[in-house]
Simulated assay, not measured.
Amino acid sequence: MEFNYLAVFVAALVPILIGFLWYNPKTFGTAWMRHAEMTEEKMKSANMAVVFGVTLLLSFILAFILPSITVHQMGAFSLVQGDLGIQPSYETFMAEYKDEFRTFKHGAFHGVIAGIFIILPIIGINGLFERKSWKYILINTGYWIVTLAIMGAIVCGWR
């Protein structure tokens, strides 16, 4: 099972690129600022080099783990990491199923599923305790669903 580091690198850029579009004032930026209680002054007070640098680092971490969510063969690969190593049965399995479900569409599907079943509950719980509106929760969750769909498509379909 080869690991595509270039796909992970490209996928790691997606959160920043989608963020520029998603949180732009012409899309959801104005509504997000209002519901996040964010002001221009708060935004200008941040060290944006640090914000974007840490965002990129965290995006790499996310992109690195996404193949385990989007690529079914990663499950089989994880089984051969023990003391026995790679057995002929694994070689046979990979020869037969190497490219099964390795499409952009399949990766996007798993990205959407991760967004709905992992991200929505996390952001929803935090938003409820932070007394944020459902609009705030849905704007942020929508961003992550779209972002994970694109990231999942890249890491699963790009071979």
Score class of each variant (00 low, 15 high):
Glu2Phe: 13
Phe3Pro: 05
Tyr5Ala: 14
Leu6Asp: 06
Ala7Lys: 04
Ala7Arg: 02
Phe9Ala: 15
Phe9Trp: 15
Ala11Glu: 06
Ala12Tyr: 04
Val14Phe: 02
Val14Ile: 04
Pro15Asp: 10
Pro15Gly: 10
Leu17Gln: 05
Leu17Pro: 01
Leu17Asn: 05
Ile18Trp: 09
Gly19Asn: 09
Phe20Val: 09
Leu21Ala: 12
Leu21Thr: 08
Tyr23Phe: 04
Asn24Arg: 04
Pro25Gly: 13
Phe28Gly: 06
Phe28Val: 08
Gly29His: 02
Trp32Glu: 09
Met33Ser: 13
Glu37Trp: 15
Thr39Val: 04
Glu40Trp: 08
Glu40Thr: 10
Glu41Ala: 00
Lys44Ala: 00
Ser45Ala: 06
Ala46Gln: 11
Ala49Tyr: 00
Ala49His: 00
Ala49Asp: 01
Val50Thr: 07
Phe52Gly: 00
Phe52Ala: 00
Phe52Gln: 01
Gly53Arg: 01
Gly53Ser: 00
Leu57Val: 01
Leu57Pro: 00
Leu57Cys: 01
Phe60Ser: 12
Ile61Pro: 05
Ile61Val: 13
Ile61Leu: 14
Leu62Glu: 14
Ile65Cys: 08
Leu66Trp: 07
Pro67Met: 13
Ser68Gln: 14
Ile69Asp: 05
Ile69Thr: 06
Ile69Lys: 10
Thr70Trp: 15
Gln73Val: 12
Gln73Asn: 14
Gln73Gly: 15
Met74Gln: 14
Gly75Tyr: 13
Ala76Lys: 13
Ala76Asp: 07
Ser78Lys: 15
Leu79Gln: 09
Leu79Lys: 09
Val80Gln: 15
Val80Lys: 12
Val80His: 11
Gly82Tyr: 07
Gly82His: 07
Asp83Ile: 10
Asp83Thr: 07
Gly85Met: 05
Gln87Thr: 07
Tyr90His: 09
Phe93Thr: 11
Met94Glu: 07
Met94Trp: 14
Met94Ser: 11
Asp99Tyr: 14
Glu100Lys: 15
Glu100Asn: 14
Phe104Gln: 06
His106Pro: 01
Ala108Thr: 01
Gly111Cys: 04
Gly115Trp: 10
Ile116Cys: 04
Phe117Tyr: 02
Ile119Asp: 08
Ile119Met: 10
Pro121Cys: 04
Ile122Asn: 09
Ile123His: 12
Gly124Thr: 02
Leu128Pro: 00
Leu128Ile: 08
Leu128Gln: 06
Phe129Pro: 02
Glu130Lys: 15
Arg131Asn: 12
Lys135Ser: 11
Leu138Ile: 01
Ile139Pro: 03
Ile139Asn: 08
Thr141Gly: 06
Thr141Gln: 05
Gly142Met: 03
Tyr143Ala: 08
Tyr143Asn: 07
Tyr143Met: 06
Trp144Asn: 14
Val146Cys: 04
Ala149Arg: 05
Gly152His: 05
Ile154Asp: 01
Val155Trp: 08
Val155Lys: 10
Cys156Ala: 15
